[in-house]
Write a protein that binds this DNA or RNA. Structure first.
Length: 743
DNA sequence: CGGTAGAATATTTTT
DNA sequence: TATTCTACCG
């Protein structure tokens, strides 16, 4: 396990304080635990669940909703330690999305879906909306697909169906003012499209659960009876539908415990509503409230600085967070000439700190936007400091992985139009865009899905050239072949898909660095299906797809385990590090441009800064740059207004003497082409590897140790198949792969 | 139809 | 700057 992310053990060994203890013991009725940063929240939750099990509650009757699936996994492990009960896996524990997707599969038939519905990610959704907008002949600039999707998502989060929208004059007026009178039409079409394709987007997983419970009393009753004890973490970041679902499910037993901190609510852009927490006491009578106010994580200076900042927010629950740890150092405020200098200097600070007896994993760099990671990366790389970036694209969102996943999803759900459209001509098979559009329109005309259209008489009403017709027939035949594999294990299915579609072959035929990287990712996918197929009893395609559709982790794999963590503040939620660097404290960046206009949004940005500061155990370093590169040009900036809100007693400004005559621009840093691919390596080493032999052990820069299994010299590119100790089998091109022979 | 080159456009945060 | 979109030629 990541030691950087593990909570420090000092809180573990101590006894619970009286408030924590009381919160653990008070099991009956509605409970609200307001848990400040570092107050041992996770510990209270795990101990509480363990306590329930230890007093004889059946784990099956516990529902615990967490913010990420990773958190759920870690908590389960801890509860197992506390209960001597191997049955912790019976606890229904996970994110709203993953728990309810399972319930929805179970009950799918009731709401007009089948159990094998597939899940659209945001990219899929936006694509569908883009297509709808185009089909309606609307101006794509006024009807920006992403904006429309965001708005649809917000509607769903607030339980406003197209029907309800119709009754809201306010909403209609809003869209009219935005010159988007067709919004409702798009919304409606989008919903129809999802439903017809037997697909749900992320929001549907919630809204459909809500509707299911609302319209089916027996079903609701079944789950009310099952979930006798309900616990929700991070309640401040729940949205309206989630709040309502909780009310539905807990209505019978009323044993609902919410945990959270209104000051750490940072997801309102996703519909999260701080008022869910603030109104909890109004909705349930006799709520027992606990406040965990002692911060066991940070020094007094850090806690005080954070308190002085958050005091500027109006909308909050009263509480006094305090620390009785050492006073500690003041927050350091650093000013730099530009973003690049900021990256280099912060990297230097970290590097120096590491040399003075701390380890890399004790440091984290936090920023407002993902794009800011680049300059930090450059700085760290130059100094040879190991780092890991959280965020960016999740593995399963990469193009080549999504392409293959589209086949798998289609096997599961033949009517998943979005997946079908994605692979209709991938790999290219002579079916072009105009052909696809013709078929699409024919499908729409009949209210058929594309797959159904392809297999019906209707397809004959469309005119194709002879050749195209042949290609389509081939494609349909190919799909029929792979569809038959649905009941095999995932690994075999994937093998079949790769074999019959020739995806890998095409990439291998053109081994440029980009394709090499894709091949590596695909073999990574192979490995994970292999592991999945071996694991437990669920090797079914449906389980695999469900799991990865809801996989939120965006961690890169690294071979070393001591590294500096780089992530957005949003991702740092719940984590802690001894040394925290918060960069880019500039107006327009943090707080972001959009949020500076509205008070409510500014308060959220302030909470975000609060979250960032309170991640630190020992020391906080804050920085900003007077100039920042944006859209390819340099812009002047001003320091963030938040910096003046921290009481001067807890923060120390250190002016950077060299800032104005920095020579940092005179030498250039090796550039990373982009995040997801291309590790171009030394081709000069080529000749060293000419005499590779089967059975040799090698050390690869990413995959570690492995043994050469086969060598293929055909096609002019030497390819070797290597079995890695930790990463399984991979095919590498010796021309590009970076490795050493070790025996 | 397929591939590519040059243009257009985008940066707030994500289950 | 980096990624995505569009237009055009083979």
């Amino acid at each position: 396990m990541d030691n950087s992310l593990k909570k420090s053990d000092n809180t573990q060994k101590q006894k619970l304080n009286s408030e924590q203890f009381a919160a653990v013991q008070h099991t009956e009725g509605p409970v609200m635990i307001i848990a400040g940063p570092g107050s041992g929240k996770t510990r209270v939750i795990t101990e509480r669940i363990a306590h329930l099990i230890n007093i004889g509650i059946n784990p099956e009757n516990i529902l615990a909703l967490t913010f990420t699936n990773k958190a759920a996994k870690e908590m389960k492990a801890r509860i197992a330690d506390l209960t001597e009960n191997n049955d912790v896996f019976a606890i229904c524990m996970g994110t709203f999305h993953s728990i309810f997707s399972k319930i929805l599969r179970e009950e799918a038939h009731i709401i007009g879906y089948t159990t094998n519905f597939t899940i659209y990610d945001n990219e899929d959704s936006v694509k569908i909306i883009r297509r709808i907008i185009k089909d309606l002949n609307l101006d794509k600039d006024i009807y920006n697909a992403k904006n429309i999707f965001t708005r649809i998502s917000l509607m769903k989060n607030y339980i406003i169906s197209p029907k309800k929208y119709l009754h809201s004059e306010t909403l209609k007026k809003q869209d009219l003012n935005n010159k988007r009178p067709e919004f409702l039409n798009i919304y409606r079409k989008y919903c129809e499209s999802c439903k017809q394709s037997n697909c749900m987007d992320f929001d549907d997983l919630l809204i459909n659960t809500y509707d299911l419970f609302k319209e089916n009393e027996e079903i609701l009753n079944k789950y009310q009876t099952k979930f006798q004890y309900i616990l929700i973490d991070e309640y401040q970041d729940t949205n309206k539908v989630q709040d309502e679902i909780i009310k539905q499910v807990s209505d019978k037993n009323k044993n609902v415990c919410i945990v959270g901190d209104d000051s750490q609510s940072i997801y309102s852009f996703r519909g999260a509503n701080i008022n869910n927490m603030l109104n909890f006491k109004k909705f349930y009578s006799d709520v027992k409230e606990f406040k965990l106010e002692q911060n066991y994580r940070s020094t007094q200076n850090i806690v005080n600085a954070a308190n002085s900042l958050i005091a500027y927010n109006k909308n909050k629950i009263d509480k006094t967070i305090f620390s009785d740890k050492e006073e500690g150092e003041k927050i350091q405020l650093l000013e730099y000439y530009n973003d690049r200098e900021e990256g280099q200097k912060i990297a230097t600070l970290i590097s120096n700190s590491i040399q003075q007896s701390t380890s890399a994993s004790q440091h984290a760099v936090l920023y407002r936007t993902n794009s800011q990671s680049k300059v930090i990366e450059d700085g760290l790389r130059k100094l040879g400091v190991k780092y890991k970036i959280y965020g960016g694209l999740s593995f399963y969102q990469r193009k080549e992985i999504k392409d293959i996943m589209a086949f798998l999803k289609l096997i599961l759900n033949n009517n998943d139009d979005e997946s079908l459209l994605r692979i209709f001509n991938y790999p290219t098979r002579g079916i072009g865009l105009s052909t696809i559009n013709k078929i699409r329109l024919k499908a729409e005309e009949n209210n058929y899905t594309i797959w159904r259209t392809l297999n019906s008489e209707k397809i004959n009403e469309v005119h194709f050239t002879k050749n195209v017709k042949k290609n389509i027939d081939h494609f349909v035949e190919l799909l029929h072949t792979i569809f038959k594999s649905i009941n095999k294990n995932v690994f075999e299915i994937l093998e079949l898909v790769i074999e019959t579609t020739g995806i890998v072959r095409r990439l291998e035929d053109n081994p440029n660095p980009e394709n090499i990287n894709r091949l590596e990712n695909i073999s990574e996918l192979f490995n994970s299906t292999k592991i999945f197929s071996m694991r437990s009893n669920n090797d079914k395609l449906i389980d695999f797809i469900n799991e990865i559709s809801l996989d939120e982790s965006t961690e890169q794999k690294t071979t070393h385990n001591d590294y500096v963590s780089l992530m957005t503040i949003h991702q740092s939620k719940g984590l802690e590090f001894p040394y925290v660097y918060i960069v880019g404290l500039e107006n327009g960046l943090f707080p972001s441009q959009q949020s500076m206009r509205e008070k409510k949004q500014l308060e959220e940005e302030r909470r975000l800064f609060y979250v960032a500061i309170t991640r630190a155990i020992k020391k906080v370093i804050v920085s900003y740059s007077l100039n920042r590169f944006k859209f390819g040009s340099m812009n002047q900036t001003t320091q963030s207004l938040f910096l003046n809100e921290i009481n001067y007693y807890f923060i120390k400004t250190i002016k950077n003497q060299k800032a104005y005559k920095s020579h940092s621009t005179t030498f250039s840093i090796p550039k990373l082409n982009n995040r997801k691919l291309v590790k171009i390596t030394n081709n000069d080493h080529n000749h060293h590897y000419k005499n590779l032999q089967i059975g040799q052990n090698i050390l690869h820069n990413v995959f570690g140790k492995g043994t050469i299994k086969t060598i293929d010299n055909s096609h002019g590119n030497q390819k070797i198949k290597v079995l890695f100790l930790e990463h399984g089998e991979k095919i590498l091109l010796t021309k590009f792969a970076k490795f050493k022979i070790i025996s």
